[in-house]
Amino acid sequence: MNNMNRSLYLSNVRLTDGQRVSVSIVDGRIEALGAHVDAPRDAPVEDGGGALLLPGFVEGHTHVDKSNWGRAWYRNEVGPLLTDRIGNEREWRKTSGHDAAAQSLALSRAFVQAGTTRLRTHVDIDSDAGLRHLEGVLATRHTMREMLDMQIVAFPQSGMLIRPGTVELLDDALAQGADVIGALDPALIDGDPVASLNATFALAQRHDKPIDIHLHEPGEIGAFTLKLLLDRVEATGMQGRVVVSHGFCLGALPERERDALLDRIARLRVALLTSAPPSCTVPPLKLCRERGITLFGGNDGIRDTWSPYGKPDMLERAMLIGMRYDLRRDDDLMIAFDCVSDAAARGCGFADYGLRAGARADLVLVEADNVAQAVVARPVRKLVVANGRIVARDGALVA
Rank of each mutant, 00 (worst) to 15 (best):
E168F: 10
V58P: 11
Q176T: 15
S7R: 11
D332P: 08
S24H: 06
G251N: 05
N68C: 06
G49K: 04
Y325D: 01
D47Q: 08
I30E: 09
P44W: 15
Q113A: 04
R118C: 11
Y325K: 00
D149Y: 05
R120M: 04
H214Q: 01
A344E: 00
G354V: 13
V45F: 09
S22D: 00
T117W: 13
N370F: 11
D304P: 06
T143F: 11
D326L: 05
L184N: 07
I321P: 14
V398N: 03
E220R: 12
V37C: 09
A199K: 03
T95I: 14
L203A: 04
L355N: 06
N2F: 12
L273A: 14
D17S: 08
A235C: 04
L215A: 09
E234C: 10
S24K: 04
N88L: 14
P284K: 00
V180M: 00
G222R: 00
G79V: 12
R378W: 05
C288A: 00
G222N: 05
V242I: 02
G49T: 02
M4F: 15
L250E: 01
S279W: 13
A361Q: 12
V167C: 09
N5K: 10
L131Q: 12
D126L: 03
H36M: 12
R360Q: 11
D47T: 03
V13F: 06
L53W: 07
M334F: 07
L315K: 01
P277N: 02
C348T: 10
K66R: 11
M334L: 10
E146H: 15
H214C: 03
R29L: 10
V376Q: 11
Q205S: 07
G56C: 02
R267K: 14
H142S: 15
E255V: 08
L327Q: 04
P156C: 08
P277S: 05
R206E: 09
I189F: 09
L315G: 05
D259L: 14
R378Q: 11
T62M: 02
T117M: 02
V242Q: 01
R41M: 14
R14V: 03
L268P: 11
V137G: 02
